[in-house]
Design a binder for these strands. Sequence first.
DNA 1: GTTCTTTCTTGATCTAGATCAACTTTTAGT
DNA 2: ACTAAAAGTTGATCTAGATCAAGAAAGAAC
Lengths: 206, 206
Amino acid sequence: MGVLAFRFSFTHMDAFDHLRNKVNELSLMSEGEWDDFSSRWTQKTLKKGEFIIKPGKIERYFYFVHSGVMRAFVLINGVEVSVGFSYDGDFSGAYDSFLDQKPSDWNIQTISEVEILRIGFKDLMDMFDRYKSLERWGRIFNAQALIGMGRRQVEVRSFSAEERFDRLFNQSPHIFQLVPQKYLASYLGMTPETFSRMRKQRMGKD
Amino acid sequence: MGVLAFRFSFTHMDAFDHLRNKVNELSLMSEGEWDDFSSRWTQKTLKKGEFIIKPGKIERYFYFVHSGVMRAFVLINGVEVSVGFSYDGDFSGAYDSFLDQKPSDWNIQTISEVEILRIGFKDLMDMFDRYKSLERWGRIFNAQALIGMGRRQVEVRSFSAEERFDRLFNQSPHIFQLVPQKYLASYLGMTPETFSRMRKQRMGKD
DNA sequence: GTTCTTTCTTGATCTAGATCAACTTTTAGT
DNA sequence: ACTAAAAGTTGATCTAGATCAAGAAAGAAC
């Protein structure tokens, strides 16, 4: 029982340490700020296939992914378009809905079991009001996300299906293990059939 | 000559008022903050066709477009991909290069004569350090840009060339007047030929 | 393990939109 | 106003990748 308690406490702290490291990458918080800030987050474990947001709902939380993978997608004319994935160490959520607390167009669904931390809208806004260090973190976090999305836009628009496949494979081979390929296909803007054929060409077996 | 002086002063103040209105939309600055902040910007007029940034250069400024139109594009395998346009009231610049002061991949070029205000990197960072109201403005500005880019990504990925054409035409008919159609074609992810054919279909003459 | 469902594969066809080419209109420079 | 260059048009062809279809493999549920 001592062991169990230790384990629980260990995994718990681990997620929070993980969060703290990620926050500190962009803006340093004082010990006191961190204590207050971290107390606003709660930890949850989600089963594979759970949705954290569906269209029409308002996003109440901002998420930090401690472990596992989630995917974000929108449904257009009955077709799912995968827009991105969140891995351990990423922040996630239906950002537009969260920020103005209006209904979302997005789906975010777990692809595996996922351990997350989450913070409610009011708590986070409260933190932004209170701490300049956090306001700065928010600014830089958004800026980086923006830059990343700009790159991705160029990626999608400038390269052929074949080039997109290769570039993803070279840059992030690990996600071929983590994400079912029909989602990768959609993310890359091609059909599962095309994806499968390209995959076959590069690696005979694997 | 009195008239000329008045005119000059009027247009000058106008750009700064314009900027102030835009900043205040997202975060209110005090009179004193604004005085300091606005003193860091300088006004310039750019001729049609001028570049404010080219690949390999470091973006030293953040821009506010008071009047006119600019376009942002990247060159991939010798092909220009138009990523977006900035109109009056928009902020602009090669953001990734600006933020970490590393060389840019982007081109930003004026499409018409453009009146801008611009602020240097160090000045802007200084302002972020000094004023929480501005840090907040930066956070929210980035968030909105991010959300807009997310929408655009879905747009490009989910709709056919025809649908993209119609959606742009319905949502922003004015830009058909402002932007040469080869740039619009590129922005919409189609060739000028395809754009021309679609245009012909909808409007006989015009 | 056995069955049921979902994902992936492979082949055959089809099509939106690209490419190529020649011409017309518009814009810019002197 | 005149000329050269750039932008836009129109038609004929071509192709990357979609769609359709049917079978194989892999996961999930009992």
